[in-house]
Design a protein around this nucleic acid. Structure first.
Length: 286
DNA sequence: TTTGCCGGGCG
DNA sequence: CGCCCGGCAAA
């Protein structure tokens, strides 16, 4: 009786705390750096729209923060009891990473600078084999092609043959450096390898952000390499390297998030067994 | 401060 | 064995 009581009590307490006290006391594992001020659906919708547009049109990659945007950034941290009611039955998507605050910034940035002031750069690029000639005016590109590639062909009138050798395209110069480098840095590295693991356990999350993921990931893949090059792959130390005889073998702690962080203290029942027992995680284990 | 998990206790 | 937690170390 006593033991049982103890266990159950402990459990229920932890559950209680998990769903109310603990979480409301502070914030979620990684959530609310910027969420404090973000509870406007309208704004989020705007952001979302902007994001989708970006991903559709030109931007390098648009991660899936909009999953969060979609839920209006309630932040699982504060008052999750209400937070978990964000959708019909499903508890709540696991807080994924802290880096989405970057996204917020990015979005905000983009939001303030909607495509209005970037038109001025539409260029014409010569598509002739080796030639990469680029110019700003239709006239000059045609002149270039006619002279350089087609040779002197100025009969009385032309059949616009030049048109086949150049393309017209828009180039947005305003803010490529910040956007590009920033995102490339922050998103892909973890996203790809890590996300694969996460899919195993977290499904709704995928559901939520399927669209963004698809578009984002397909683009962000190549970037991953360049990033991870400088990130040190971290090979596992199985044996050898008697660096520390004193410490038997404490695993170096893999860099991907485990059940606890993924699902949060609430939803502890979603954790893998080992995590529940405070043992080495098996689901997201390296 | 939080997170991952080893060591160890209990049934 | 399964289950749980104290407490340490890394982040």
């Amino acid at each position: 009786m006593k033991a049982l009581t103890r266990q159950q009590a402990a459990r229920s307490i932890s559950m209680l705390r998990g769903s109310h006290v603990t979480r409301s006391r502070k914030r979620g594992p990684s959530s609310s750096y910027d969420l404090g001020y973000g509870e406007r659906d309208d704004q989020m919708n705007e952001c979302n729209a902007a994001l989708v547009l970006m991903s559709l049109s030109c931007s390098p990659n648009s991660p899936r923060p909009s999953a969060w945007g979609g839920r209006s950034s309630v932040s699982p941290g504060a008052s999750s009891s209400s937070g978990s009611s964000w959708r019909s039955g499903t508890p709540s998507p696991p807080p994924v990473s802290s880096s989405f605050s970057d996204e917020g910034i990015a979005m905000d940035y983009e939001d303030h600078h909607p495509r209005k002031k970037r038109v001025n750069s539409v260029v014409f690029e010569c598509t002739w084999r080796g030639c990469g000639y680029i110019t700003h005016t239709c006239f000059s590109i045609e002149a270039h092609i006619r002279q350089t590639h087609l040779g002197p062909k100025k009969e009385g009138e032309s059949d616009h043959e030049e048109e086949f050798y150049y393309t017209e395209r828009e180039v947005s110069t305003p803010a490529p450096p910040p956007t590009l480098s920033h995102r490339d840095m922050c998103r892909p590295p973890h996203e790809d390898p890590d996300y694969q693991r996460q899919i195993v356990g977290s499904y709704r999350q995928g559901l939520l952000s399927t669209m963004q993921n698809i578009s984002a990931r397909s683009i962000s893949i190549p970037v991953t390499h360049s990033w991870s090059n400088s990130h040190s792959p971290k090979h596992m130390k199985i044996s050898a390297s008697g660096a520390s005889p004193s410490s038997p073998g404490r695993r170096p702690r893999s860099d991907n998030k485990k059940c606890r962080k993924v699902y949060g203290m609430d939803q502890r029942d979603q954790w893998c067994t080992q995590c529940k027992w405070k043992k080495a995680c098996t689901r997201f284990g390296d």
